[in-house]
Design a binder for these strands. Structure first.
Length: 417
RNA sequence: GCGGGUGUAGCUCAGUUGGUUAGAGCGCCAGGUUGUGGCCCUGGAGGCCGAGAGUUCGAAUCUCUUCACUCGCCCCA
């Protein structure tokens, strides 16, 4: 018999772990509620072109990481490799812009990318993310960043570093690209092979190189912040001053370049020292041109994605136990078949009254049922057997106090409240 | 896509220079007298030693292939 395993780079989230996921999802929802973001759910797959056109033709995501397939109708579809284009697509498709001046949307989504798996990097992963569509003001940047900041703070995560940069508007990019090329021209041949390609295709990425020698060579490269337009500069300065006003510390990183083509102006990452190579736990920025490029009216926007698995990994590394209680209030121990019918009525009644209850389904001895009740952490064990049936009672044992008494069967619900 | 490491019971791991029925701890199940938990004691179940092929009289131990995990590069959440 062939046994199957989960496909490479995917994982099962088991019952022992799901409470932590739920805790985090609830926390994120709660904070989004405080910031007045609303949840949006978009399909698992989209037309392939949505990503090739808007994530960026030259990005790694589009060129080599997409799960693309053709359906029976001949359509080319792609499993979501990131959350932003689908959200913007939905925003435009349903004219959300006509409802509110700014659409503040959040989502939980599975994300699919064909990559080499390693710790903190999977082929299917989960992101919570949000988009703020229609807000050009620097206060919007801070709205989004401060939400993430509070989220980490509330979870008790320490050591996260907010890295910040501005890459200016679309008109600044060519200027900067040329400035970089001009700077690097004298020593192109000394750069690592990938950077030599980057020099030709996307010079900005050279700044992101991990190679020591490249870093040294490019250490004094022109800084994009110096080149960007005056409006962009003012915008960035204001964002920084607002962050300071909120006491949110940040590190300016002139070499911060994100891998998606659509970013403009503010870009940021939250990094933790606890994750090894995959140290970005949350990343995002402005994409002021995307809505227009998708056929909408000019609508400056921004957002971020936050990796669930990396967040959990960080919590684990920090030894943070999330308070999750999955214990049933009551365990109902049943002895003998005469008691069975009374038992199933009783346990349904308990649940109908909002009391969580578990029982035995395998005909174990009372001793085993007690052990099971103990393992599950039940506060009360109700014992119902021949004796109890005769007397019309249930034995109620308080597991913590180790006290036991008989309670009339119709008074049990009150007894365990 | 490139390079390094690992792969033995549910979990964490031992398994000596290839040699007979593959081990431990934890967990699980059942008992420790007749209907009762957390400690302790006893017993038990459970492994085609990741998969496939090869070398050998004989392989968990050696070789190759493959799959998965893991670390770094790359990229990003």
């Amino acid at each position: 018999m062939t046994r199957f395993n989960a496909p490479r780079g995917t994982q099962d989230v088991l019952p022992s772990a799901t409470p932590r996921w739920q805790f985090i999802e609830n926390k994120f929802r709660e904070i989004c509620r405080l910031f007045d973001f609303r949840e949006i759910r978009t399909p698992t797959f989209e037309e392939t072109e949505l990503f090739t056109r808007h994530t960026g033709k030259t990005t790694d995501i589009v060129t080599k990481q997409m799960y693309t397939f053709t359906d029976q109708g001949g359509r080319s579809l792609t499993l979501k490799p990131e959350g932003t284009p689908p959200t913007v697509r939905a925003y435009l498709e349903h004219n959300l812009g006509t409802e509110l001046p700014v659409s503040k949307l959040y989502y939980f989504s599975r994300i699919f990318r064909y990559e080499r798996p390693q710790s903190g990097r999977y082929r299917e992963h989960n992101q919570m993310g949000l988009e703020m569509i229609g807000a050009a003001d620097p206060s919007a940047d801070v709205e989004v960043i401060s939400l993430a900041w509070k989220f980490f703070k509330d979870l008790g995560i320490t050591g996260v570093e907010l890295r910040l940069n501005s890459i200016g508007g679309p008109e600044d990019r060519p200027t900067y690209r040329e400035a970089l090329r001009k700077f690097a021209a004298p020593f192109v041949k000394e750069l690592c092979p990938t950077c030599q390609v980057r020099y030709e295709q996307n010079p900005l990425r050279m700044l992101d190189c991990k190679d020591e020698h490249c870093r040294e060579l490019l250490a004094d490269a022109p800084v994009i912040v110096d080149i960007i337009c005056d409006d962009c500069k003012t915008h960035f300065e204001t964002v920084k001053s607002y962050l300071t006003a909120l006491n949110i510390p940040y590190v300016l990183d002139p070499h911060l370049v994100r891998g998606l083509d659509y970013y403009t102006r503010t870009i940021f990452e939250f990094q933790t020292p606890h994750l090894g190579a995959q140290n970005t736990i949350c990343g995002g920025g402005r994409y002021d041109m995307m809505i227009e490029e998708m056929g909408g009216s000019p609508t400056p926007s921004l957002g971020f994605g936050l990796g669930m698995e990396r967040l959990l990994l960080t919590l684990e590394k920090l030894g943070i136990d999330l308070e999750v209680d999955t214990r049933p209030s009551v365990f109902l121990a049943v002895m003998g078949n005469e008691a069975r019918e009374a038992a199933i009525r009783l346990i349904y009644d308990l649940r109908d009254n909002g009391i969580s209850a578990e029982t035995d389904f395998t005909g174990r001895s009372l001793k085993s049922q007690m052990k099971l009740a103990d393992k599950l952490g039940a506060k009360f064990v109700l014992i119902i057997g021949e004796d109890e049936i005769k007397k019309g009672v249930v034995s109620v044992r308080d597991m913590l106090a180790k006290e036991q008494r008989e309670v009339p069967i119709d008074k049990v619900v009150e007894a365990v409240c």
